[in-house]
Each structure stands twice: as C-alpha cells, then as structure tokens.
C-alpha cells in the first residue's frame, strides 16, 4: 500500500458572496495595495491517504470532498496528490 500526501483546497463558489474576502480586499486597499481584486478566503486541508495507486487515492479523496470536506451547494474544491517517497517520510 502506498502513502499519498494530499492538499485539498476548498473555497466558495464564484456565485457566492465571500464577506471575509471582501473585508480583506478592503483592508489591502486601505493599506495602499493598489490593483488588488477578487480576494477570496478559502480553506486548505492537508492529509495523507493510503491507496494502492494514484487513481484509487484520487477516487478516495474525491468521495471525501463530496461528502464531508466540501458542501457542494456553496463550495467547490480541488486537490493535489503526491506519492510519499522514502526520503520525504519523516
């Protein structure tokens, strides 16, 4: 069984107003950071999963995202996945 390092990113759909992102955007403008727009605040989850191959690992993460980690009514997600090698293991 291989071990996979997974980074899941969850954020609000573009159609859903993000008051946090809006507040951060205003703060950035107040501080003089010009030309900044479309600030969105999301969530980052990192996890490791065990699976025999990448396809199985991806399928596992997809199910977790769709049932628990993400509420598809308001949120969307993406993730990256990388096999943990012997050197990377701590």
């Amino acid at each position: 069984m291989k071990v996979w390092d997974v980074e899941v990113k969850v954020w609000l759909k573009p159609s859903v107003f993000d008051p946090q992102g809006n507040a951060v955007e205003q703060a950035l403008a107040t501080l003089g950071h010009d030309g900044v727009s479309n600030v969105r605040v999301g969530k980052n989850l990192s996890l490791t999963v065990q699976a025999p191959d990448e396809a199985a690992a991806r399928a596992k993460v997809d199910v977790m995202c769709q049932t628990v980690l993400c509420n598809l009514v308001i949120e969307t997600y993406s993730f990256t996945i990388q096999e943990r090698t012997a050197e990377a293991a701590v």
Binding site: F17, P19, Q20, N71, V73, I74
Partner: peptide, 17 residues
C-alpha cells in the same frame, strides 16, 4: 438539516461578518 440534505440550500457567514 441543510447539511444533511433534509432542507435545501446552505447557511453562510453573515454578509456583515
């Protein structure tokens, strides 16, 4: 109830924070 799918939609952070 919305998370469980017994009611439609979702509840989000208040727009005024």
């Amino acid at each position: 109830l919305t998370e469980a799918g017994l009611l439609p939609g979702a509840l989000l952070r208040n727009d005024n924070l």
